[in-house]
């Protein structure tokens, strides 16, 4: 463990808590993409299967349970409890265009052709594009509530910090995982446009408005 990965995990946890709290407190999921949340649920489910088989550390196991629980809770709130507030009209990204290529790529490019490893690889590829429905929805509605933009910022920063973690691990442990790194770069780059808007607008107290 290193400071970059710890801060990254904390930022990731913060993002998930911010979102869950926003939906729960406002009793509404307006402006939130349920499709992205479904994809995140799929990412954690396919990646954390080893929760039962391999024990790495208490921290690792606890965080996996928290991420899975928070993800399922968010999906439950969006699609069951507060589904009347779910914005179908703006959450229209075709997620099959993300899932199918991720499956294909995981079968083609992986470290080991075993079920758990293929699922892990699929989760890495899918996570790199899972935010697209949410970013697409923000661009369609043309704006995002500030709490939603804080959520997106924390979520984008988490994988950015993981990039620093991978640089550190390459230098300090001579260990690197090219699949995770390439997907992590793609994932972080997708947020760049949002990062720019967040820094220049939201941090100045303005609403996040995308140029129409």
């Amino acid at each position: 463990m290193n400071i970059f990965r710890l801060l990254g995990d904390i930022s990731h946890l913060l993002a998930i808590i911010i979102l869950l709290r926003k939906i729960w407190m406002s009793r509404s999921c307006a402006g939130i993409s349920g499709k992205s949340q479904l994809l995140f649920g799929l990412v954690y489910t396919t990646r954390y299967l080893d929760l039962i088989t391999s024990y790495i550390s208490l921290y690792n196991s606890v965080m996996k349970v928290v991420f899975l629980a928070a993800s399922y809770a968010t999906i439950y709130l969006m699609y069951v409890k507060f589904k009347a507030t779910y914005d179908h009209n703006h959450d229209t990204f075709r997620i099959e265009f993300l899932v199918v290529p991720a499956v294909a790529l995981a079968l083609l490019i992986n470290h080991d052709f075993q079920v758990v490893e293929i699922l892990w690889t699929f989760s890495i590829y899918l996570e790199s594009v899972a935010i697209l429905p949410q970013l697409f929805m923000v661009s369609k509605t043309g704006e995002a509530e500030s709490i939603t933009s804080h959520y997106l910022f924390a979520l984008g920063v988490y994988r950015g910090l993981y990039l620093l973690n991978w640089i550190y691990r390459f230098w300090a442990e001579d260990h690197y995982d090219l699949i995770a790194i390439v997907a992590g770069v793609v994932q972080t780059v997708l947020y760049c446009d949002f990062f720019y808007l967040y820094i220049t607008k939201v941090l100045r107290g303005k609403k996040l408005q995308l140029p129409a």
């Binding site: 995990d9 790495i56 965080m63 996996k64 993981y162 001579d174 260990h175 690197y176 995982d177 090219l178």
Partner: peptide, 10 residues
Amino acid sequence: STLPKIHDEL
């Protein structure tokens, strides 16, 4: 590169 035997990251 020492390929990750197990994935120790979240």
